[in-house]
């Protein structure tokens, strides 16, 4: 079922709303809390996020990617293990590869996905599938070189919650 807040609006929609000029960290935090409370949260949420990451609206995709990162850091082992499967990673690959959606995805979204995948290979070296997917993307020339991780990504997860502006 959809994760709903008091307003009845999907919490996933709220956390990734492209009409917001900035990421709403409290909405993301609420979303992560709901994922942790809902028994189906960890297994259903990755797919909800994958769908938004594949959105033609750049902002929605970018916000969804941030939510994904935060969920991996804050929603526990079950969420993490869903995301570490090829079944999920393939959804990110589809956004990058010109064979699927890559031709009409913006460089900004692709760059973020590459950054996220790379950071996961650094922080979760035990996740062989993440490493394999990343290596294959490099081999195919879809990823040209390892991205430079921004300063706030140098600390391993769980990352602290950013303060809402």
């Amino acid at each position: 079922g959809r994760l709903k807040g008091k307003s009845g609006r999907g919490l996933g929609d709220k956390a990734t709303d492209p009409s917001m000029s900035e990421q709403d960290w409290s909405a993301i935090q609420n979303f992560c809390d709901q994922v942790n409370t809902d028994p189906n949260g960890p297994t259903h949420t990755p797919w909800l996020l994958a769908h938004k990451i594949q959105s033609p609206q750049e902002k929605e995709a970018l916000y969804a990617l941030t939510v994904l990162e935060m969920c991996v850091n804050h929603c526990g082992e079950k969420f993490h293990s869903e995301v570490a499967k090829f079944r999920f990673l393939n959804e990110l690959i589809k956004v990058l590869s010109p064979k699927y959606l890559g031709s009409w995805t913006t460089e900004k979204v692709k760059g973020r996905i590459i950054e996220i995948l790379y950071s996961w290979t650094v922080w979760f070296p035990e996740d062989i599938k993440i490493r394999d997917a990343y290596q294959m993307l490099k081999k195919q020339g879809i990823i040209k070189q390892d991205p430079k991780l921004p300063v706030d990504k140098i600390l391993p997860p769980p990352s602290p919650w950013p303060k809402s502006s």
């Binding site: 499967k85 090829f86 393939n90 690959i93 064979k99 699927y100 599938k129 294959m136 993307l137 879809i142």
Partner: peptide
């Protein structure tokens, strides 16, 4: 057993 077959079916997309 369900988990094992899920693992077997988990493949990387051809790129």
């Amino acid at each position: 057993l369900g988990e094992e077959s899920e693992e077997r079916d988990d493949h990387l997309l051809p790129m």
